[in-house]
Write a protein that binds this DNA or RNA. Structure first.
Length: 485
RNA sequence: GCGCUGAUAGCUCAACUAGGCAGAGCAACGGAUUCUUAAUCCGUAGGUUGAGGGUUCGAUUCCCUCUCAGCGCACCA
């Protein structure tokens, strides 16, 4: 006895015994008067007034001692101890024998403090709210197997308060962003996930099909082009917290579906976006963590203060010691060879330069830094820099070598926009697969006139990782993609 | 996609540079116990060692293939 089937059989037997006693092991409702934390917060008054509290939760620990039993149940707010004794329950005390760790029960009783000082509910009435048929993981070590954590997240959440805390913080972060933007008159919108053409980023899409229209559709890799249509439409401040889908590899910072917020503000430029994201993240850290100096991946990072701004080409000069603008394509390729930078399959000067940037610059940036003014070739949706036509008004926010945000002064010149798309098509002809297709409908919208606009995309998952000190994206996504078992 | 590492009871882990009946704690089951704190005490049961094949008298252990995961690389705004 004690294979998994035996556990189930034993518990089913207990469930049937409950039924025989006229108790429904899966009743419809239980009225809760207090949560566990309500009880801790108000315990003096509850004890003084002898208030009858009604509380429910899952049995996590059970210590049976003959005519007395101590049980710890966990509700949405935490653990609380129950004291069950034959003196208070009488004949119903027998039902304790039908309980198992993992069962969800509801009890009524008065609050008291034990001799050892633990706040406890002395149970007068008890009922099973859901009989559990499978054993929970071990009480002390919980779940260690990461695969099990991801595949059976519910068990991870039951057993591991850290996991629970991480996802509550994720909620807090997203709520903070919403509140922050709503207070500043941004309008939250929803745009299509199923798109007839994909754009707004460089990535491989997922393809799907609509049967009734007999139409191929892509799961969005970005919502950028739709949000800017809304700017054209006069929704001058919009944002969407969007699930995006990219058909690419999985690693510590990439999940095929992930959450990105994109924010667009009419009459603003990329400097405004720098101010916005810097202030947003700083205020968020203060409100949610109560501090701006954080520990991440073995580094101490100060989020407060004015974040450094470094020109893209200057950054390459600083860390790679070359001036790529003074080098022709052959010299660039030679440099890549010498430094073992793989540019296989990279088409176009811009992508080669960007590869040098990725390999030699990104890793070296630790503190929050705006890398600004990227090359035009790799930024088809960004506006030409007001002082230099080879660059665009764009920035990437880097922290510890990872990108957290990408923003531009949005390109609103429809003629230039068409040229940029056409350049993308040229790259495709040369063999580059990841290009942004010409989107005529989008160009038409631009031709009606889009105000000068600042736009930014912020990776929510990575931001949550940063603020919860998690090194893998799977730890901040409730159900990360794993291979089917 | 490539490389390395791992998978043993429901869970957490053992089984040693050497191939010899697969073990413990928690959980479970039976019993004792009316203020316990990872409760305690006595007793019982629980395994196709991820799957498949090979070597061997004998494989958790050695070899091969596969599956899944972690890490690294590649890919990746």
């Amino acid at each position: 006895m004690a294979g998994i089937d035996e556990y189930r059989e034993q518990r089913i037997k207990k469930m049937e015994q409950l039924k025989e006693k006229g108790m429904n092991p899966y009743p419809y409702k239980f009225d809760i008067s207090h949560t566990s934390s309500d009880i801790f917060e108000n315990q003096e008054k509850l004890i003084q007034d002898k208030t009858e509290v009604s509380i429910a939760g899952r049995i996590m620990l059970m210590r049976r001692q003959g005519k007395t039993t101590f049980i710890k149940i966990k509700d949405g707010n935490g653990l609380i101890q129950l004291y069950i004794t034959i003196n208070l329950l009488g004949d119903e005390y027998e039902n304790v024998k039908l309980l198992d760790i993992g069962d969800i029960i509801g009890v009524k009783g008065e609050v008291f403090v034990t001799h050892r000082g633990e706040t406890t509910v002395a149970v007068k009435k008890m009922e099973v709210l859901a009989k559990s048929l499978l054993p929970l993981p071990e009480k002390y070590h919980g779940i260690q197997d990461v695969e099990l954590k991801y595949r059976k997240r519910y068990l991870d959440l039951i057993m591991n308060d850290d996991t629970r805390h991480t996802f509550l913080l994720r909620r807090d972060i997203i709520k903070f962003i919403r509140d922050y933007l709503d207070q500043r008159d941004f309008v939250e919108v929803e745009t299509p996930v199923l798109q007839p053409r994909y754009g707004g980023a460089f990535a491989k899409p997922f393809l799907t099909h609509h049967n009734a229209l007999d139409m191929d559709l892509y799961l969005r890799i970005s919502d950028e082009l739709y949000l800017k249509r809304l700017i054209v439409g006069g929704l001058e401040r919009v944002y969407e917290i969007a699930r995006d889908f990219r058909n690419e590899g999985i690693d510590k910072t990439h999940n095929p579906e992930f959450t990105m917020i994109e924010i667009y503000q009419a009459y603003a430029d990329y400097y405004d976006m720098m101010d916005l994201v810097q202030n947003l993240i700083q205020e968020m850290a203060k409100k949610i963590l109560g501090k701006t100096k954080i520990e991440y991946s073995g580094h101490e990072i100060e989020l407060n203060g004015s974040w450094e701004r470094i020109d893209y080409y200057e950054a390459i000069k600083k860390f790679a010691n070359i001036d790529v603008r003074k080098m022709d394509d052959d010299e660039l390729k030679k440099f890549c060879d010498e430094h073992e930078i793989d540019i296989e399959g990279k088409i176009g000067r811009g992508k080669i330069i960007d590869e040098i940037f990725s390999e030699m610059v990104e890793k070296n940036i630790i503190n929050p830094t705006f890398v600004i003014n990227q090359p035009k070739e790799i930024s088809p949706l960004a506006k030409i820099h007001r002082d230099d036509e080879t660059k665009v008004e764009r920035f990437e926010l880097l922290i510890l070598g990872t990108e957290y945000a990408n923003a531009f002064s949005e390109l609103n010149d429809p003629i230039d926009q068409r040229k940029r798309f056409e350049y993308q098509m040229e790259l495709r002809k040369e063999g580059e697969m990841e290009v942004q297709e010409i989107d005529e409908d989008y160009l038409e919208a631009m031709e009606y006139g889009m105000p000068p606009t600042g736009g930014i995309g912020i990776g929510i998952d990575r931001l949550v990782m940063l603020l919860t000190n998690r090194e893998t994206i799977k730890d901040v996504i409730l159900f990360p993609l794993l291979k089917a078992r």
